[in-house]
């Protein structure tokens, strides 16, 4: 029996400023699974994720994106976010004057204070306390009172993005290099966090990465390799150490020969 995949990309062609980046990509993401989208630099990995999120500079020239079987090409970013699609930015823009903790409470219903204003007589709402505990778990307590993304270090950006995307409880999340710029300790923190999401099995995870550590730790189900804006290989976990050893060029040419 054919199950409708959560997200299906059909022959997608995407251009930015008139130059074509994706040249007809078709692939699927099924509910609850973990995917790695890999490929050499400039192969179109981030473009794929951003086009799915609906960022307007990514112009879809042909093909379709189906979410639960229905095209979402006419839905804007907000609508896609509310459907359950989330994207963790590689380099999120600074929003001056908007405090990080206030922003999280704004976008995540579960952290919103349910008590009327002035009820606490100077004490913080329990949702806020929970939020601060969760910040601590990801090691970002120091960001709470800072302006969103303003002067965040590379590692802080990654953890803040991950925090936001997780807190939105999406159906499918695209994590654009969640592990770049992280030191070993942060890498472990992020890995553990992602692992616990995987174990819950309620969210499809798509990880764009160059590093094997996170992917192996997460035990990805499916590996997609993009090259030159096309899907050139579909495999699984076992390909990752081979890839790491041989590099894309050799790996892909050997696969071609074998086929």
């Amino acid at each position: 029996m054919y199950m409708t995949p959560l997200l299906e990309i059909q022959d997608l062609k995407v251009s930015i400023d008139g130059s074509q980046i994706l040249n007809g990509v078709s692939l699927q993401f099924e509910a609850g699974k973990v995917y790695a989208v890999l490929g050499p630099n400039a192969s179109g990995k981030s473009t794929l994720a951003k086009a799915i999120m609906g960022l307007p500079e990514f112009n879809i020239t042909s093909g379709d994106i189906l979410y639960n079987g229905e095209s979402i090409l006419d839905d804007n970013i907000t609508e896609r976010a509310n459907m359950g699609i989330a994207y963790a930015f590689q380099i999120p823009p600074a929003i001056p004057g908007v405090r990080f903790d206030d922003f999280i409470c704004r976008i995540c219903p579960e952290y919103q204070c349910k008590e009327p204003e002035g009820h606490f007589m100077g004490k913080a709402c329990s949702c806020r306390m929970e939020l601060y505990d969760d910040f601590e778990r990801l090691g970002i307590s120091n960001l709470a009172y800072r302006d969103l993304n303003e002067g965040f270090s590379g590692g802080e950006q990654k953890r803040s993005e991950l925090f936001q995307v997780l807190a939105m409880q999406p159906q499918i999340m695209f994590l654009d290099e969640p592990d770049s710029g992280l030191d070993y300790d942060s890498l472990k923190l992020v890995g553990r966090e992602l692992k616990s999401i995987r174990e819950k099995g309620t969210t499809t995870m798509v990880v764009i990465s160059h590093h094997r550590y996170i992917l192996e730790f997460l035990e990805v189900d499916v590996v997609y390799i993009l090259q030159g804006g096309r899907l050139v290989y579909t495999g699984d976990m076992e390909d990752i150490p081979v890839l790491a050893e041989k590099g894309y060029e050799r790996f892909l040419s050997e696969m071609k020969e074998a086929a």
Binding site: M53, I77, T78, F89, I95, P96, R106, I107
Partner: peptide, 20 residues
């Protein structure tokens, strides 16, 4: 775009940026 990807509408996002 960033704020909209977090579920805010365009008007809400504009207002948040302006307030900030």
């Amino acid at each position: 775009n960033y704020l909209m990807s977090r579920g805010l509408t365009e008007d809400e996002a504009t207002s948040l940026i302006v307030r900030g």
